[in-house]
């Protein structure tokens, strides 16, 4: 993990990682793509950094909100589709 420094407000180093490195790894973290050691380092950082803890929670809620936006479409769409495919 690497990213350039000084772009994030209030960035700090906790648990051997900078906030920017944690930010850069959030999607990898949520998709299970990190090795156990890197996951543990991110978790240690987040436990000791209120900014990353808050942002990580926002990040997770954003993903859930997009998921929740996928409402079932009207069944009429299926009826029309089946009719069109049967022609």
């Amino acid at each position: 993990m690497s990213s350039k420094a000084n772009s994030l407000p209030g960035e700090r180093e906790v648990g051997g990682l900078r906030c920017g490195e944690v930010l850069g790894g959030l999607t990898e973290y949520t998709s299970g793509g990190l090795d156990a050691e890197t996951r543990a380092r991110i978790e240690a950082h987040v436990r000791g950094c209120s900014q990353c803890e808050r942002f990580g929670a926002d990040f997770a809620r954003a993903i859930r909100a997009i998921r929740a936006s996928a409402e079932p479409p009207s069944a009429d769409v299926l009826v029309r589709l089946e009719g069109r495919l049967a022609r």
Binding site: S3, K4, S7, L8, P9, G10, C19, G20, L23, G24, Q51, R54, F55, A57, D58, R61, A62, R64, A65, A68, S69
Partner: peptide
Amino acid sequence: DVELLGASAGFGCADAATFEDR
């Protein structure tokens, strides 16, 4: 730039984001 995006996305903001309004 991920860090610039992170700042725009609210990193460092004291208030939690809201994602309630569908």
